[in-house]
Nucleic acid binder design. Sequence first.
DNA 1: TGGTGCCATGAGACCGGTCTCAAAGAAAAG
DNA 2: CTTTTCTTTGAGACCGGTCTCATGGCACCA
Lengths: 380, 380
Amino acid sequence: MRPVSKKSYYYLDALSTGNVELSAMEKKPTYPRPVTVNDVAKRAQVSKATAARVLGGYGGASEDVRRRVTAAAKALDYKPNELARSMTTGKSGTIGVVVGDIENSFFGLAVRGISDVAHANGFNVILANSGENIEAEKSALEVLVGKRVDGLIVTPAHSGDTAHLKAVVRSGRPLVLLDRSLPGFHVDTVVVDDRDAAFNATSKLTEAGHRRIAYVSAVKAAADHFPDGSPIAISSVLERVEGFLDACRQAGIADPERWIRRGGTNEPDRLRAVVTALMSEPDHPTAILASDSVIALEIFKTLQIMKIPIPAAVSLISFHDADWTSVTNPPVTVIDQPIYAMGRKVAEILIDRVNGDTAPAAFCVMKTRLIERQSVAAPP
Amino acid sequence: MRPVSKKSYYYLDALSTGNVELSAMEKKPTYPRPVTVNDVAKRAQVSKATAARVLGGYGGASEDVRRRVTAAAKALDYKPNELARSMTTGKSGTIGVVVGDIENSFFGLAVRGISDVAHANGFNVILANSGENIEAEKSALEVLVGKRVDGLIVTPAHSGDTAHLKAVVRSGRPLVLLDRSLPGFHVDTVVVDDRDAAFNATSKLTEAGHRRIAYVSAVKAAADHFPDGSPIAISSVLERVEGFLDACRQAGIADPERWIRRGGTNEPDRLRAVVTALMSEPDHPTAILASDSVIALEIFKTLQIMKIPIPAAVSLISFHDADWTSVTNPPVTVIDQPIYAMGRKVAEILIDRVNGDTAPAAFCVMKTRLIERQSVAAPP
DNA sequence: TGGTGCCATGAGACCGGTCTCAAAGAAAAG
DNA sequence: CTTTTCTTTGAGACCGGTCTCATGGCACCA
């Protein structure tokens, strides 16, 4: 027997086991190998290096050669292999974005802002969803770094666990935080004035005469209550809670913490239970502040089911001027955040960094605005 | 309230002292070169090939070597370069998705379905937005193919211009169409029964006694009217229009085409103008069928502004059971599409193809369901 | 004890680009 | 006409993995 090459061994194995895969493979049409610079070069009668220069648009070349190469490329339908290109240049022309919940229109809008700026600057966007889960965030980051993205935009799911983010910064890859800051972590950050926003909204409620005001947030946690010993892990949530509490205290409301509740991301059932329980208490709140529009929508639905009229029995204010908030009955008063602008801003900062900007880390706070509609009234 | 500077742009470094990371950054980006298999190999005292085998998990290796390499990798914090890996294997572990409008919750949900299946199978998703623009679609495709995605999911923006899609198929890269089919283009496709859905919804309106029914679609075009000589370029739109017309004709309505209108994607002003014009005609329609939820929302708002009561003066049915449709006043009757399931299905088909499935192209039609709420009544 | 087959390992080609460097040729300067 | 400078071009290394192939060692068997 002659020496058995790996190939013929595979072949024998397939035959002896009656493997169907092989016959499938045999049938599989053999697609043309994608054309490379080398193919173009040969056809244009120049060296690989020369062809690469005109194709990649970096070196000089005579008019004659340039024309020949371009013609050959078109004739062969040459498509550059971005992978190979990225490998030598070290640049992928891609930025990675990790958001908490892609289905939340807040992130949808922010991502559009990011994409618009990215594409205008010749960058592509790889989007990953953490589902507000820190482990998913870590693995997403791992993948994006593995793909050698040029920079990262992240809405960190947890401010306690930031080793993976610090590792990114240490490796020299630009990172910008969106919507949430990380205490003690000096890196470019774009957020809104969450504290002011919550303070203003809550003040609006206290001024209307409310004394029992609930704050319902989205972030999943072990317990429903915030003041349960479990720390608040997201800066924007913390800021909002503080603004909320400040406004309550300033209005002389005692123990406002008791009305703070958490729902869960993508867990409408759980949130509904929380709201139902909240409103079933004997001295239930007369006003609710919702931390985002999906929370608010669920609260709205639940109140509707419970036949609790807005704003007659309960007033409602929500973060995020989602599109539906103006068509409900009543339309709901919201805190308008410049989300699209935030997306643009965060992408602009990132791209500057990718292009070599070494200025000190910027902390960018954007203003919000209260849009008063008809979901706020005096308490019953 | 906490003072916020007008420019809302702070330099943290100016406030904090002695930030090591940043002062290092001010110098030059002399970051440590990322560690490679070679580095690991050297540290573990084995050859590059051996280290690569255990790191890549493909070849065999003795227990001793395996342990040494693993330890070295951990000590050096080795992160594989996916780019390099993809280049030799030809597989990137990534699927590309091109949707019409990422902000439309229809696509948001579908993308979540796709992502869930993709990630469960070890694939990553690169998302691109065509904005229903055929040129943007082409360029997105170009980029994704350049990045050597393993497969593509596309919602084609135009059924007349499909050369770029055919080129993808010809190159052997799996492609699956979502939500829209392409006539004469035999490739895996996942759609809903648009024609039936439109027929049923329209029938519901005719049964309620309506004779003047408008169909408002999202797709941008040169003119407002469909029957203007410009062909309908998207299969699902065409199917819906046909279902709509069939139902009208079956109810004995003459010239139903006159009530067909187009808005525009991401052009609320334009759509509002269309609706306003439509409803300002002397014999304006008494019912409207909206082709998706963002269209419906805009129609809803416009009618509200015009003080045209729903359903007293005008009945409304919309495609897509968007979350807000149940909280409006009145809640709107919708055609529920299994969007998330469609996303999952389309990803499953694609991944099967990537894994070598060579079965003939599948055409998958999913059923819709009419959810009756309170936006339909008899005409005034 | 030699043959045989398997396993572990290392050397080096390879993927498809970029980039460095040197040689050849052309134009400009002396 | 020679020297210098600039431009155009080609040869080949390189990026960081994968993969083929050859080799050396060991177990198994007659």
